[in-house]
Write a protein that binds this DNA or RNA. Sequence first.
DNA 1: CTTCACATGTAAAGCGTTACATGATTTG
DNA 2: CAAATCATGTAACGCTTTACATGTGAAG
Lengths: 187, 187
Amino acid sequence: MKARKRTASTPYSILGLLAIEPMSGYDIHRAANETIGHFWSESFGQIYPTLARLAKDGLVRRVADATPARAGRRRTTYATTARGRAALAAWRKRPPVLQPPRSELLLKVFFCDPRRAQDVLLHVRAARAFEQARRATYRVWRGRIRREAADHPSRDAWLATLRYGELHARAVIQWCDETLRAFAAAS
Amino acid sequence: MKARKRTASTPYSILGLLAIEPMSGYDIHRAANETIGHFWSESFGQIYPTLARLAKDGLVRRVADATPARAGRRRTTYATTARGRAALAAWRKRPPVLQPPRSELLLKVFFCDPRRAQDVLLHVRAARAFEQARRATYRVWRGRIRREAADHPSRDAWLATLRYGELHARAVIQWCDETLRAFAAAS
DNA sequence: CTTCACATGTAAAGCGTTACATGATTTG
DNA sequence: CAAATCATGTAACGCTTTACATGTGAAG
């Protein structure tokens, strides 16, 4: 009779997406990439088994396809149930578990050999380019939210997570610039 | 004859710390928390088995204790070998694998019910307090590096990772403030 | 004499990705 | 008809944490 672990937020990420709109597993994967991709990710290997479990537990249910498959195999669309939305609300209230941060880039910087700094600065430049590219993505997303979700009740919440991405990208780019300058001066 | 996975950076984080100074497994855990803790973490369950494997592979070796145990069980101190340092240098050159970001806080914000926004804003306030506290830690660390590593060749690299933490904390705090303001205005 | 800090290690379980298997339909 | 896209699902593997097991010496 021990307290089980219950840390996994994968079921809730799925529940949350289905609460916005009924979707198939395939859609969930795409929607995750296109909306919460800068701070969350789910693979098919997680999505399909989790959907099956949620359905068994009565937190989601199969529904008729609103948008039937355009091509390929027959799809299975899921929607949340009242119990599913209640579970989501309860999860939302619980304080988020902050996962230990892990940045291999910073690890390489920390263990950087000053005589071989160029090896690592290459990675810093790549990181800068990556964040710069993401900034462009964020601009696209911002336009999409403004156009397609102008009156949606969750609009402000979506803009807030987007804003996080922008501020994060700005901070990373500034850090890359400062670091590149500091090591250029040193060499 | 397939290409094996080889993603794990745990052995390199250990190798990197041992390259700075010979240490025991217990020390590695503490050093990780006190120097790279804002972007990396290792648990004992990883450290001890990894140390054993690295020793077997000849990348680290047991050495006599420089600082013998002050209390408790006899400790085992490890140092890097030439092969270990070579492996570390090779790893440093490889582009870092960027791990999919996962922020449960942002997930809760994204799936926030606008009518129950207070539930989530509580988490935002906690996150702000957390980052604020970390800022104080960073000030302590900065002083320690200036005092104790003034002439260490890796000084600039260590300051760079510290600077990352500071910029990150600043960005998060700004985001928290903006978000709290936006939702206060809306309610 | 009990508690705390030091110290090492193993076992189990959870989480997550990757690779693989399968298959239908559209597009070139 | 080949390739791309849509779509679902399983199996294997690897990484990491948590819990447990064990034991010592110092401090209060």
